[in-house]
Write a protein that binds this DNA or RNA. Structure first.
Lengths: 216, 216, 216, 216
DNA sequence: AATGAATGAGCTTTCATTCAT
DNA sequence: AATGAATGAAAGCTCATTCAT
């Protein structure tokens, strides 16, 4: 019996393995293509080709193009939600905490073009899925910033008339703009913006703006 | 013959009139539909219906859907370019000048949803047209801000280490975000953001952030 | 002005003409193909080919395959309904009236294979459309037979215990079976059933059965 | 080895058992689904689901969908053929014999919707299989009726000019119509036709029609 | 100038069937 | 014997574009 189990389990595992692999290959390909071309522009054939599987499997695993798109979004939102839920460790100085959060977000955007673009498509297409179906990232951020900011206000570091939501939105905007509005960026600078130095310079600018604005 | 001429000339004028009218009806309809659904999502039939003309006319006047889209963009960019070229009248105080410019831009965005969305689609679709073909709005802004800022620095109002381009991009981002990322806005506030008071409050926030950031 | 009208009307007529022609070519082709292969088996491409038009036009004129099928049925039901509404002229002898009606129906079926098959498909597919949307042929028949039969009963020709509806259904069945159950027919006879003599012989059989059954 | 054989034989039996069970589960499911949706409308997946087995097994046991359909038909035809071969026991009175046969057929149809529908699909789809491959049910009936009718004619009960084949076909039609043309039935009656009383009333009608028609 | 019928390429989706275990 | 992943051909339908008047 032991021997039988040993020979039969690997079989099942192998199939399940391949199945999961296929599913995630599709998801990966879909993520990059949906990010690039949007929910309308993306073609199922293209995704199938990119995933190296038969188009039919997309329908086997996800039911429809629409559904696949939703899964891509869910995956994407879960990722940043989970990251931000676990990753922040609080220092004593509110300045440090804020700076850390901004830096983390800025570099997350810099390194996750797919995330930036997927949320942009969603924003334009009316947020059919995101914002309703998925964990609300900004609610979480609001909760965490609330503590930081209140602490900062109590200790006299932060202007007491500040609206946390405005701060969150402004930081969001300031970080995002480098990656969503490249026409503007390239119309102002004529050099590569994704070099390490440039990225750091931009982050520096954001931090200075935010700090000397919200800190008295 | 005389009589005929007299009756036929107005006809020709009428034709030209109707021709221009048709063209601009198409452009108007196309603007709103391209703004709503993007270059991929918009349908030629839909635009023709909305313009109340025969689909064939779109090809008569614009040659192709792509071309119509380009015309829509050109129209849109020309509008803001012309406005910003003429509209700023300089006061003596750089603070006032900057505030005026930001206010003007903020309310322009608030009142021109089509502009906001068209530039967003362009940003996502790779700026095939904008940023290359059209008057570079941000170049103009850079020129104008340059004077204001340099004046401000000379007179000791503005931090000398400031990068004007960063300021322009930041202002752009701070104004835009309220209108492009409504999912985020509505996840943070649960009220209508387009009331006069709210808009003014947001603008106030932006100004405070920018002033206490870039002014020493 | 007269002249203008004369030259401009034909233009419009020409287009409308061709449009109607196309529509009816599609309808004709669809009728025969739906009759042959049923609503599931019929292929849109095949219908388009048979109609000699581009497949796209089917969607232009009828919206969908389903809808085209409904139109085909409507056309078919209207045809027999209108015919039977106008065609019967009453003689004095109820035997003659009944015989005429049966003969007319029998030969209508013999000559309209499409009708026979379309109603058969509908009967099998659950009568999604027919029987609900269309003029109820059998209600009409019931009305007309009612007069004939009642007259026959009053004058002592027809058994008074007869149920008209059963008679209608039986006649329907007896006529139809030759055209719907050809496997059975060919298993019993091994000759061509569609020769004039055979058809007449079958009709004779039906009439004898019905008459010597319902007439006392 | 002995012990192994003893334990392995039952296994094989169990396998064969399960094998036959699977086969007949497929056949049962296929019968009801083919009856409901026809050879075109039925889906292999649906049949597999209904049978509670893996789709692959259908190909293992039957080779193809087409083949499975043929088996379903064969099964269906064998059933009625065998039944009618054995079931008729002859009385002395030809009236009784005919009535018995008609009653048996009528109630067989009433109770075997699948049979009614399967033969209807076959009739429409061109009788690809039935009527050629399978025991010719109506040939058998013809043989048996022949004796009954000839006996009836000799004894002066039945009109001598009768064509047995016509009688068989007519009875077939009269019985079948209640179950194949429910749209017509429901357009004439507006009540449930499957109650015991209604069924009996219909059968009575058929018998009266046939008897007073073919019996002098 | 203006119309509406017509087109062909391409899209999403479905299905019977086979491969590998 | 039995499974589930995988496939390719074809279906219904859509869209930007052109033809003929």
């Amino acid at each position: 019996m032991e021997a039988l189990k040993q020979t039969s389990f690997p079989k099942v595992d192998g199939r399940e393995q391949r199945s999961k692999e296929s599913r995630s290959r599709i998801l990966k390909a879909a993520t990059s293509i949906f990010a690039e071309k949007g929910p309308e522009g993306a073609r199922v054939d293209e995704i199938a080709d990119a995933a190296g599987i038969n188009k039919r499997m997309i329908y086997h695993y996800f039911g429809s193009k629409e559904n696949l798109y939703v899964e891509v979004l869910r995956h994407n939102y879960n990722k940043i939600y989970t990251l931000s839920k676990n990753a922040i460790d609080f220092a004593d100085d509110p300045r440090v905490n804020v700076a850390r959060a901004i830096r983390a977000y800025f570099y997350y955007l810099a390194e996750n073009e797919a995330h930036v673009r997927l949320t942009s498509w969603e924003a334009l297409c009316g947020g059919r899925c995101a914002g309703k179906l998925f964990p609300k990232f900004f609610d979480l951020i609001e909760l965490e910033f609330d503590d930081i900011i209140k602490d900062g206000i109590e200790r006299g570091f932060i202007r007491p008339d500040i609206d946390i939501r405005q701060v969150i939105l402004s930081v969001h905007a300031l970080c995002l703009v480098y990656f969503t509005r490249q026409e503007v960026v390239q119309s102002l600078w004529h050099e590569d913006m994704f070099s390490e130095e440039m990225l750091e310079a931009c982050l520096e600018h954001i931090l200075k703006l935010v700090f000397d604005g919200i800190f008295s």
